[in-house]
Design a binder for these strands. Structure first.
Length: 573
DNA sequence: GCCGTTTTCGGCCCGACTGTTTTCAGTCG
């Protein structure tokens, strides 16, 4: 994906400029560009072609030209030239925790160390002894950093990090003197992957709290241990956890600061400066240094003249401008979901019966669910033949006669076959309350094939919703290469909803694709795709993604009460 | 390198921890 390539290149350029001790604001411009490329709502090449790239804030004349150059030639001269001066190995060294630009430069220019391997060998052989600023601890830290880097590859899925963060919060909550604990950082923004876990604590006894944290049994290594801030690496996952103690009357400012995103924060600070204030993690201060806000996040946003911005959309994607106009969307919440309408039973690859799934959903407060087992071509999942689907429909009808409060809809997650046809005869599908069409095979088809395939499925008029539309699995499989403009336009034409699949490794559609789909007027269904009653709890992940995609209650069909939801399914769209 | 109802030049966000420093630089978030 060209956006990721550009992000890496800009990040490399920023790194080398930093090693060269260049103008820090020029470096920041490149860093920001790297972030912007990652968050772009569409392919940079497409946005270049249709003129939208020119409008992107933070991409000025120079950066625009460089992006253009890369898209047309596959290279960027400034990047190539800088790599001539400082080879890739130096950038790898810079990526080691504890090694910054100054150290990398010194090691390379004075000692010719241009790879992590050489650095490791020099550290072990004692060759680094005697270099100014290098004593035993520094050298030991470099070796630890190299080992750590090897063990940590990339980011962690939200579904991994969030439960761990909540578990640590629970543990630390038992420590004497603790008044409140909050997750901050990208985990609070509910980004689909997170780099680390940030926790803020208000405590009457910070010292013991910090001691308790670094002694947690799940901690493998303590990186730092101070009176107000400590960092450690967890066993097994090698996730980094940062804990900070803040004063009660600074909690709001600290939450805002440590929740980020970085670009959102910088904008907030700029607004503060324009008003003659100073904003830091302790509060908002007037020109006399008097604190005028900080206890709650609401106060901080309010005194800056902004509407409160929900954490999930603090990505500097226009939310600050809208908050200034008090025009933010009212984001959907978990409590708005009335029914979970994509789940499996023992009939295909689930592990519970219709009744068990239904009663579990009822306990969660839902008014309705839909049973949507797989179709027959998905042999590995024991997909249903028409005869077995017939039996399942009867089983659902029988459950609905038991007098249970919850209503069960009959449905199917029918495979969209390689040619775009559906894996079940249309007569059967027509009898069902809800049909989700999904792709489970032929992921590597060409862009034209995949796009045409999805559109043909929608043209049948039998599909209510496209399941896990992009097909991506976080960290395992990229989204299909489809023409999403064409797919979403077809979905709009045929009034087909897009699923937001809450399964933690899917989270599909993604936040940026949701924004794009919504801009075409599409509706959504947030579902869990549960194969077990426990998995119904994943709904909060899907809702988080929807919030990151700026969705409101009315954008999501399964927020409607039963009568209206079934009305929508019957064609009242 | 970006950006602009005060500016096309001169601004651009802020603090904690570590290690080695006897007063601070480097790194990180």
């Amino acid at each position: 994906m060209v956006n990721e390539e550009l992000s890496h290149i800009f990040s490399d350029v920023a790194d080398i400029l930093e090693i060269k001790n260049e103008n820090p604001f020029r470096i920041r411009a490149y860093r920001r560009a790297a972030q912007i490329m990652e968050d772009l709502p569409d392919d940079a090449g497409v946005m270049l072609a249709d003129g939208r790239l020119k409008q992107v804030p933070g991409i000025g004349k120079d950066l625009y030209t460089r992006i253009e150059e890369y898209i047309h030639t596959g290279r960027m001269a400034v990047h190539d030239e800088l790599l001539q001066e400082f080879p890739q190995g130096v950038l790898d060294i810079l990526a080691i925790p504890g090694v910054g630009p100054k150290t990398a430069k010194l090691l390379f220019e004075t000692y010719g160390i241009d790879s992590v391997e050489k650095l490791g060998a020099s550290a072990e052989s004692g060759a680094l002894q005697g270099i100014k600023g290098f004593k035993e601890k520094t050298i030991a830290n470099i070796l630890k950093g190299i080992a750590l880097k090897k063990s940590i590859q990339g980011r962690f899925p939200l579904g991994t990090a969030l439960p761990i963060g909540e578990m640590i919060i629970q543990e630390l909550g038992k420590v004497r003197g603790v008044r409140s604990l909050e997750l901050a950082g990208s985990i609070r923004r509910r980004k689909e992957t997170v780099g680390d876990i940030d926790i803020l604590v208000v405590s009457d006894e910070p010292g013991p709290l910090m001691d308790a944290f670094v002694r947690l049994k799940d901690i493998e290594r303590v990186l730092s241990h101070g009176p107000t801030r400590s960092s450690a690496i967890l066993k097994n996952t090698h996730l980094q956890v940062d804990v900070r103690v803040v004063e009660k009357d600074s909690l709001g400012a600290a939450l805002a600061y440590f929740t980020g995103s970085k670009t959102h924060n910088i904008k907030l600070r700029e607004i503060a400066v324009k008003k003659g204030y100073k904003l830091n993690e302790y509060g908002v201060f007037d020109m006399n240094g008097r604190k005028i806000a900080g206890a709650t996040e609401e106060d901080v946003y309010d005194i800056l003249g902004l509407q409160f911005v929900p954490p999930e959309i603090r990505e500097d994607q226009g939310e600050i401008e809208m908050a200034l106009e008090r025009n933010l969307p009212r984001l959907i919440g978990l409590a708005d979901i009335r029914g979970d309408v994509h789940m499996h039973t023992v009939a295909s690859d689930g592990n519970s019966t219709v009744g068990q799934m239904a009663l579990s959903a009822q306990a969660l407060g839902y008014a309705y669910i839909a049973i949507t087992d797989h179709s027959q071509s998905l042999g590995v999942a024991h997909g249903l033949t028409p005869q077995r689907l017939e039996l399942e429909i009867r089983e659902i009808e029988a459950f609905n006669r038991t007098g249970a409060r919850i209503k069960v809809l009959s449905g199917m997650e029918v495979d969209i076959l390689a040619d775009g046809s559906l894996d079940m005869d249309s007569g059967m599908l027509g009898r069902l309350d809800i049909v989700i069409g999904s792709i489970h095979s032929g992921f590597r088809q060409s862009k034209e094939q995949i796009t045409g395939r999805m559109i043909r499925a929608m043209e049948t008029g039998l599909v209510d919703c496209i399941g896990h539309p992009s097909g991506r699995l976080i960290g395992e499989r990229d989204a299909y290469d489809a023409d999403w403009d064409a797919v979403f336009s077809a979905a709009q034409k045929y009034r087909v909803a897009m699923e937001i699949n809450s399964y933690p490794l899917r989270l599909d559609l993604t936040d940026t694709m949701i924004k794009k789909a919504r801009s075409k007027g599409l509706k959504f269904m947030i579902t869990t795709d549960s194969h077990d009653p426990k998995q119904m709890r994943y709904m909060n992940y899907g809702v988080s993604v929807a919030r990151r995609g700026w969705l409101e209650k009315d954008d999501v069909v399964n927020t409607q009460e039963f009568k209206h939801f079934t009305g929508w399914l019957k064609g009242d769209r």
